[in-house]
């Protein structure tokens, strides 16, 4: 069994997801190959030295992929798959993983499964567990090999394996056909001084908030708790709160002492940003909401009744 893991990195550091996928691949006894795409050979070598526990590492070093370029990286990944013939290709469920995995599957005529949380060996290939319907259901699939997967962040606890990092072998696929160019890298705007990543107490509201007219209710509870107010992605997309207050996959990852949340379903992309909070209390009127599988305490009480009641309780209790 051979696994090819697409290794993501940022600012010269390999992402945790690569090691999570490594542990998952090792758990099915796979020989693990890593693929790095980066702008030059020096960067490839420096990233390669971080890949302890991998059995082999190859790299594409080309200015076209100096920053992630969806089309050029897909060409590179496909070339690596052709030379290494892995049984299973693993990408993380990240932007790059979404771009690459399904495209690779179609182009290499392999079956593809997304949102994988676990893999086990079975007679014909692999048995895969994945999350669907916003985390409300799991799916179990007999996955014939060779195949492509995207693996959920957190599928395994990242920890590096001992041993030396393997030498990096350079691949030189022809990337000249790419019709896609990276023009500008945008870093988050931190000028407002909000830093959810450092907050001890967070109160997060979800789509159920319904609009800015209800925002004062949420602000009052956040103030009573001395907590930072945060939002799920739909709250930010609707413009009810600024982007800097978004928790989750495409927002900030947080680890506060208290994460109180109301009207947030607990989709995997939200959980990714907050599931290691020390205490999670969820308010959600749907008893089947996935958040109740992660929260420590939960209530199916209507948030529009509970938020003012809790604010009042805290204000009278604190005074």
């Amino acid at each position: 069994m051979r696994a090819l893991i697409f290794v993501e990195h940022s600012n010269g550091v390999v992402s945790e997801n690569a090691f999570e996928m490594l542990l998952l691949a090792k758990s099915i006894g796979a020989e693990c190959h890593g693929l790095i795409c980066t702008g030059d050979a020096g960067a490839a070598q420096a990233l390669g030295t971080q890949l302890t526990g991998f059995d082999a590492v190859s790299a594409v070093a080309d200015p076209t992929v100096g920053h992630y370029n969806p089309e050029a990286v897909l060409i590179a990944l496909k070339a690596a798959v052709e030379t290494q013939a892995p049984d299973v290709v693993m990408t993380s469920y990240s932007t790059a993983g979404v771009d690459l995995a399904a495209g690779l599957a179609v182009r290499s005529e392999r079956p593809m499964l997304g949102y994988v949380t676990d893999l086990e060996l079975n007679s014909g290939g692999l048995s895969a567990t994945s999350q669907v319907y916003g985390g409300k259901l799991t799916a179990k699939t007999d996955l014939p090999l060779p195949a492509v997967t995207t693996v959920m962040p957190g599928a395994r606890k990242a920890g590096s394996l001992s041993g030396a990092a393997p030498a990096v072998t350079m691949l030189k696929p022809d990337l000249s056909g790419a019709r896609t160019r990276v023009r500008e890298i945008i870093t988050p705007d931190n000028s407002s001084g909000v830093n959810l990543g450092n907050a001890d107490m967070i109160f997060c509201v979800g789509r159920a908030l319904g609009g800015t007219e209800k925002l004062p209710l949420a602000e009052a509870l956040a103030a009573a708790l001395k907590a930072e107010l945060a939002g799920s992605r739909p709250v930010i997309d609707a413009g009810w709160l600024p982007k800097i207050r978004q928790v989750g996959k495409s927002g900030t990852k947080v680890k506060p002492k208290l994460y109180l949340m109301a009207g947030v379903s607990g989709a995997p992309e939200h959980l990714e940003g907050m599931e290691s909070s020390e205490l999670i209390i969820a308010i959600n009127s749907d008893e089947q909401a996935p958040i109740f599988r992660k929260a420590h305490y939960g209530t199916a009480c209507d948030m529009f009744q509970l938020i003012p009641a809790l604010t009042e309780r805290l204000n009278s209790g604190n005074s």
């Binding site: 160019r181 500008e184 945008i186």
Partner: peptide, 14 residues
């Protein structure tokens, strides 16, 4: 195109 942690890039495509 958006990535983790609020990072993004402007990507041009034909």
């Amino acid at each position: 195109q958006e990535y983790a942690g609020g990072m993004a890039a402007l990507i041009e495509m034909d």
